[in-house]
Write a protein that binds this DNA or RNA. Structure first.
Lengths: 123, 123
DNA sequence: ACATCATATTCTCATTGAGGTATATTCCAC
DNA sequence: GTGGAATATACCTCAATGAGAATATGATGT
């Protein structure tokens, strides 16, 4: 993948937050809606953008689309995702997102929203 | 500096090439025109963009503006510039730019273009 | 087959950014 | 202070991008 494509993917706040969350493991669209507090269309379009450019992978699980970071990222992608994670750790927006993720989905219980069932396996 | 700002600076090919060249040391505008083979306005505007966003510093030396990477980059900037350099090393465009820089300005001689005098000190 | 839920796509609109031409600024040499 | 070189800015045009509303698709359960 071209370096410039990677940076173009990274130059939007919503996409950065998505990638930051994905560093913790796969998530489905409704997770992002909940965690980022954004509308379905917005989330969906940014995920499509990231997918088109090879920044994330997606699989359907029953009714839900589960997104994850690439299993075999290119060296450049790997380096930049690592760098992003490092930097994000220092910034409050991203900290807050991870905190919310842990709070809501840290351990899945029977009270977890039904839409989260596909990713129960991840924790 | 905000992480998002950094990525917005990095998502243009000309700016990436500029930053890659600056990793070798300070350069003036006419260097960039020569090395990147682009017009003065284009170079100048991208440099202004980078400067506005804190990605480069500029000082005037006589008739020339000399641009350099920040002397005290934020941690995020530092990390991302390092990452960029690593990645650029693998891509032909950036390799070629560095090769041209070395070829034309690797060692300054009396035949160096007059405009380069400000940066003689850098090598 | 039908209703419903999760997600994707289409359309439109406003904003942004890149590139070019022309013009302005800043410094130097005389 | 006049002219010229190096650089910056203003203004214009065009393409790309992001956001939301409405609509379409695809899977599930009955």
């Amino acid at each position: 993948m071209d370096l410039i494509r990677i940076y173009q993917c990274l130059c939007d706040q919503t996409r950065l937050r998505v990638l930051n969350l994905l560093s913790q493991g796969p998530l489905c669209v409704c997770h992002f809606q909940e965690l980022l507090d954004e509308g379905q269309v917005k989330i969906s379009k940014h995920l499509a953008y990231l997918r088109t450019h090879g920044m994330v992978e997606a699989t359907r699980e029953a009714n839900w689309m589960v997104y994850r970071l690439p299993r075999k990222p290119s060296p450049e992608l790997k380096a930049n995702l690592a760098c992003l994670q490092d930097c994000a750790r220092e910034q409050s927006v991203f900290q807050a997102d991870l905190a919310k993720l842990r709070r809501l989905h840290g351990k899945f219980t029977d009270t977890s929203p039904i839409c989260c069932s596909p990713s129960k396996s991840r924790i």
